[in-house]
Design a protein around this nucleic acid. Structure first.
Length: 106
DNA sequence: TTTATGACGAAAG
DNA sequence: GCTTTCGCCATAA
């Protein structure tokens, strides 16, 4: 029996570098519509060196969830080519990941 | 067992 | 665009 946390992490691992997804989006893709908080909670208990690209998960409005590692997350995303506006938000229209449309899948 | 909390989100005013 | 309200659910106390 695969737990919800496992499915959440599986989805996050699918997100290609240079693109982002929102918490709610991950929840839906994991089959847990409406449980966006669960996504954040699963990532919070995760180790930063777990290999999961947690930095690619952002809020529904494109901003970074305020916490200790927020600055580190922004730095990582910028190094992947993602840009932020003056209010610290990402243009989701431009960098949002849509399943099946990642650069490596023709 | 009941309450509170948290890397959230959408709707309503 | 802002704040409030409510829904969600695993953990902790």
């Amino acid at each position: 029996m695969i737990g919800a946390t496992e499915r959440i992490l599986a989805v996050v691992r699918e997100v290609p570098a240079g693109q982002v997804v929102t918490y709610g989006q991950v929840a839906r893709l994991a089959g847990l519509p409406g449980s966006a908080r669960q996504v954040g909670y699963a990532l919070a208990r995760l180790g930063m060196e777990s290999g999961v690209p947690w930095q690619r998960v952002v809020r529904a409005d494109g901003s970074i969830a305020p916490r200790r590692a927020a600055a580190d997350q922004r730095r990582r995303l910028e190094s992947e080519g993602i840009g932020f506006d003056a209010e610290g938000r990402i243009d989701l229209e431009r960098w949002r990941w849509h399943p099946g449309t990642d650069p490596l899948s023709p």
